[in-house]
Simulated scan of single mutants.
Amino acid sequence: MSRPDTAPVRPGEELPLDKLRAALTGRLAGDLTALSTEQFPGGFSNLTYLLRAGDQEYVLRRAPLGPVAKGAHDMAREYHLLERIHPVFPAAPRPEVLIEDPEVLGSPFYLMERRRGEVVRTALPAAYSANAAAPRQLSEAMVDTLAALHAVDIDAAGLRAIGRPEGFNGRQVEGWAGRWRRARALLQGSGDLPSADELHDDDVIAWLEAHTPAESAHTLVHNDFKLDNLMMDPADPSKVVALLDWEMTTVGDPLVDLGLTLTYWTMPVQPGGSRIGAAGAPEGYLTREAFIGRYARQRGQELRPQDVVWYEVLGHFKLAVIVLQIFARYRAGQTSDARFAPLAAQAEWLIREAWRRVAGQP
């Protein structure tokens, strides 16, 4: 790496090394007597650590601390997904060990191979500073990786059964609407969000319900595809080293992935402060329209910018739900991570942007 990508473990999120060593003995290569950990500081969901066992390095993922929603942060599911996806989509890291015993870390966790590369968040890495074409190359690599993911033959790979693709879009609206309402109810009376009449969140939900399209196709859906979930080759910004964070992967409409990706891509500032994308980055990155056009060409389909508006509105809404759920945990004292304090305002911005797009439709 041209710059460090890990940091000391945040206070309160340390791992019990003796328990970890005992659970991994005989199951992992490397010198476990020299076990040490650091933490990957990005992300708001699962906790991710660098685990060193002598000269061997692994990435450990576990659920966040405190209560979590039922069915969320399922480490066993993510591990088994990677077992099946890695052989047919090499950008997915190889999983190594799954430990389901909650007595070790307090919740199930797994380890996967460590890959090395650049994660682009707030600025171009120094490794790319002399390359004027780097923004375009990064953009194109991102589009091409998304299209390649959606080209995986889910039937040949035995992956269709990981989701229920028929009726996927309708269930997306229903499920995310319920999560939004539950998170909003937890904050009732707090003043953290405007009223529904002012914010138009109920109107956004009603519009999504009234305009839900049939699935455009049935493919793998990553469900959190964004630039800083990609790891790039330090020597070549046109090459993807890894695609990370597979916890929400399923089978459904690929345009749901595209809509959420465009949500991130067109935001001035993303949760966590990322500014890379069409709206928040220097010139040279693909515009929204160019992004959609390249994706359509890679997929061999007709796709106009107006064809993805419903998916973008859904993307804004889903991301609003995710950040509001995290903020609700923070507000309830279930986590003390100060990075979560601004997330109610981020959720509000996302809902307002979703409504702006809805209101602009004929």
Rank of each mutant, 00 (worst) to 15 (best):
P271T: 12
P271H: 08
R304K: 13
L258F: 02
D337L: 15
V309G: 03
R339Y: 13
W265P: 03
F291Q: 02
D253Q: 04
L220D: 07
R331C: 06
F327G: 07
L199A: 04
A341C: 14
H218D: 10
Q298D: 04
P254A: 07
H222T: 08
H211M: 02
V241I: 12
W265R: 04
E209F: 01
R288D: 08
H200Q: 12
N223S: 15
Y264Q: 06
K239G: 00
P305I: 07
V221K: 09
E209T: 10
L314D: 07
A210S: 13
N229V: 12
V309H: 05
D202H: 11
L260F: 09
V308T: 04
G259F: 02
F317D: 03
D337P: 14
D245R: 00
I292N: 05
N229Y: 11
L199P: 01
F291K: 04
S216A: 14
A341R: 15
I276Q: 04
G259R: 03
H316D: 15
E215Y: 02
L199F: 03
V308D: 00
D236Q: 08
S238L: 00
A328L: 09
F225L: 08
L230C: 11
R294K: 10
A278F: 10
N229G: 12
D337M: 14
P271V: 13
P213C: 04
A242Q: 00
G273L: 09
N223K: 13
W246L: 05
L258D: 02
P254L: 06
L220P: 12
G252P: 03
T212W: 05
Q306K: 11
L262F: 06
H211N: 14
K226F: 12
S216M: 03
A279Q: 12
W265N: 05
H218A: 15
V321N: 04
L220I: 15
P254I: 03
A332Q: 15
Q306S: 13
F225D: 05
R297Q: 14
P342L: 13
H218I: 03
A210M: 01
S195G: 14
S195R: 07
S195N: 05
D197M: 02
E215V: 09
T335E: 08
G252D: 03
W310A: 08
M231P: 05
G280M: 07
Y264T: 02
A206N: 02
E247W: 00
P268T: 11
R297N: 08
H211V: 01
V269T: 14
R297Y: 00
T219F: 06
H316Q: 13
L343G: 12
L199Q: 05
A338R: 15
G277R: 10
T250P: 01
F327Y: 15
R275F: 02
L260C: 00
R297S: 13
L230G: 08
S274F: 11
E302G: 07
T263S: 09
D202E: 15
R329L: 05
W207T: 01
R275A: 09
L262R: 03
M232G: 01
A281W: 09
G252L: 03
V313W: 05
N223P: 07
A320I: 06
P213V: 06
L255A: 01
A196Y: 01
A320W: 04
A279T: 11
L319D: 08
L258W: 00
Q325V: 14
A278H: 14
